[in-house]
Design a protein around this nucleic acid. Sequence first.
DNA 1: GCAAAAGTGTTGTGTATACACCCATGG
DNA 2: CCATGGGTGTATACACAACACTTTTGC
Lengths: 235, 235
Amino acid sequence: MAAIRASQSPKINRKAATIPHASAGPTVDVRCVLFTVADGKLLVALDQREGTASLPRSLPVANEPLDATARRTIRESTGLQEQYLEQLYTLSFRDSDGWSVIVSYVGLIYAGPETDALARSIWFDTHSLPKLSGADEKVIEYALLRLRAKLGYTNIAFHLLPRAFTLTELQNAYESILGRRLDKRNFRRRAIASGILQSTNQQRREGSHRPAALYRFRAEHDPADYLTPAWADEA
Amino acid sequence: MAAIRASQSPKINRKAATIPHASAGPTVDVRCVLFTVADGKLLVALDQREGTASLPRSLPVANEPLDATARRTIRESTGLQEQYLEQLYTLSFRDSDGWSVIVSYVGLIYAGPETDALARSIWFDTHSLPKLSGADEKVIEYALLRLRAKLGYTNIAFHLLPRAFTLTELQNAYESILGRRLDKRNFRRRAIASGILQSTNQQRREGSHRPAALYRFRAEHDPADYLTPAWADEA
DNA sequence: GCAAAAGTGTTGTGTATACACCCATGG
DNA sequence: CCATGGGTGTATACACAACACTTTTGC
């Protein structure tokens, strides 16, 4: 607990602050970890320009809010519109391209058969990822950690499903992310109790077994985005 | 669920990506919300250069990790060494100085009588803050929200106390942050049960009443930093 | 002996977990 | 009629909230 008031010099700070642009500050680059679930696998979207794979990324254009950059990145790189987006973490990184500040986002999306067909090549199983840069690897790893943790106290997994879904599909999404099986009765009880399920009166019949009831997600009761500040990103 | 594959043009993206430096990207600036507790009040540290108050801030110097920038900012602005530091949120902001990306951090510290004396002027009660920029106001508001939420599932408030403390002091810290009174017996039971209290065998006698047992915080059992990625910030 | 803060247990209520069988359908 | 996944209830353990009095000290 020794005194710390040593290097009190705000020289660099002040100087740079007066000429904010064109200084040797870091480049800001936005990267998105976009997840989807298919066949009981948790998949992540990667770009594969020039052989090596990498997270979808881009630089913010002038005065573009970071959230908008993230959404644009996802659109440009996958052609899809994410259903949920949350800022993950910001880190600085030094590599061959110079000095970057990476603002990372996590997105969730349902990639059904249609979209799957046109964009299949970009999806990679999180359990067998291709070679990635160190930064991308860490960002993905952390995104997974946070996504799993968040399943415990939010209903975020709804965003991985189509508008109408069965409880079994919902449970499969949870199990894919968590990597373990859940008890059917307990899962259904909690899902119903959470109050964010709206029971449509439709059913889905497929295969030689009892048809499943279809539900919708009541977005207005979703407490999932409480981690994102209300103002989010304005300019 | 209409098809979204509209603006597939990664023009801007690609172009900017090839000349990352010297472009008109945003300035990156790190701001710290440093909290302390005194007299049952939750206080935040503000700089008051040139009349208007603002959060302590600075620009990262070349290749400096963001966490290091945050720690340096706190040292330079308060002369103190924070006891806990966590990244809060990153937002972009447009103001008179141009286009900035603000990486915000929350720090916790114990500001005892000694430190209080030399730095008293910088501390402001969170319930009566001076006029601040819109960005700073929002960052503080969000920091408070997150700090309160975090008290529910972590033991983060220990970082607001001196090395040895009484359970009553700990409870006061919680109450100052939450803004409501807690039940003494329940509070103590949970604090003990959490396993991060190490009972020193010392007591503190002050005033005409029974002396209080002193405890220490077992940092190695602190699950508080699980929100921060293991790699945190390397370059 | 009294004022002032420290310290201490029990009970009810709600929430999470473990666990096994019948139902509706297609072929 | 059988294979397949859909759907249902109960008992137990644990976590949390409400609640009041005794203890030790300084003066």
